[in-house]
């Protein structure tokens, strides 16, 4: 089944609130080989003006992931997950994610293109804090390889 060309412009309901835990941030920071005390030590983060440890830039993918699952699980999308390759990724920040944030994420499909038998699906996930303020937008292009 080909990717549904009508997908462009479609939005999914906001993800359930994600509470950013201090230990999760530290675990993620160690996993991406971060060494900054601001990612690992609450006292160092507070001394730099943050409420708690600061998440590394790519931590936003953990929150974005829930919204990509909505897209991939949508039977109407026509996206065969076994044929999906991550093409590119972007994070555009208003402010960094900090432990204690309660985040919700809403995905919108911004474009669907065909290129040499493959489909390129670009989706933008807006991540907001509990006050509705913008934190980061996470933008992914998924390459769906064409059938034989």
């Amino acid at each position: 089944m080909p990717v549904n060309a009508e997908l462009a412009g479609r939005s999914y309901p906001p993800s359930p609130p994600y509470l950013v835990g201090r230990e999760k941030v530290r675990e993620f920071a160690r996993a991406v080989l971060a060494t900054s005390p601001l990612n690992l030590d609450p006292d160092a983060a507070r001394a730099a003006g943050y409420a708690d440890v600061v998440a590394p830039p790519t931590f936003a993918v953990v929150v974005q992931e829930h919204t990509l699952a909505q897209l991939l699980d949508d039977p109407d999308s026509g996206i065969d997950f076994s044929r999906v390759v991550h093409g590119d990724q972007r994070f555009s920040f208003t402010r960094p994610i900090v432990a204690g944030d309660e985040l919700t994420a809403t995905l919108t499909v911004t474009s669907v293109k065909s290129l040499g038998g493959h489909s390129m699906v670009t989706a933008e996930t807006a991540v907001l804090d509990a006050d509705g303020g913008h934190v980061v937008s996470a933008i992914s292009t998924l390459v769906v390889r064409g059938g034989e």
Binding site: P37, L38, F93, P96
Partner: peptide, 10 residues
């Protein structure tokens, strides 16, 4: 060490 200074990353 201030990852908050990253405004955009692609």
């Amino acid at each position: 060490g201030d990852s908050g200074k990253v405004l955009d990353y692609q």
